[in-house]
Amino acid sequence: MNDFLKGFILLFLFLLLDIIKPFGFYLYIEFLFLGIVFCALNIDFKQTFILAFIFGYIKNLFLFENIISILEFPIIVIIIYYFKNRINPFLKFILICVLILFHIALNNIYLGVSYFPLRFFIQSISIYYLFLNNKKCLSKNCI
């Protein structure tokens, strides 16, 4: 199975998790957003860019007011692609934090609110480093 297909399946599962929300509103994170970050760090740029575009579009279908995921996700992929090969693990952590802040800021601006969800920030980083900070997530056993 090539990386594109693996990434597609992974992101599709994450999208389902975001829509079904098995943990209700207790878990604040957006799995799809983390999935895009993960794919951008581990899969070839062009493939991830297409995936980001596809899933940005699908995510918009489920949003009550269309948010700019269709633009946001490809931008995230471009940012990660630019920094990917120049950073050490600590800077990678900083990059992920910045991307989460970027996501929060963009949503705030779009919805016209000023709210910093600390729970979203902490949970997103925790989930990423607990489950996704490993290229083995793309192995056959995981998908």
């Binding site: 957006e30 995510k59 949503n107």
Partner: peptide, 8 residues
């Protein structure tokens, strides 16, 4: 389904 946005 739920709205996937964390703010809504």
């Amino acid at each position: 389904a739920y709205d996937p946005s964390f703010l809504r």
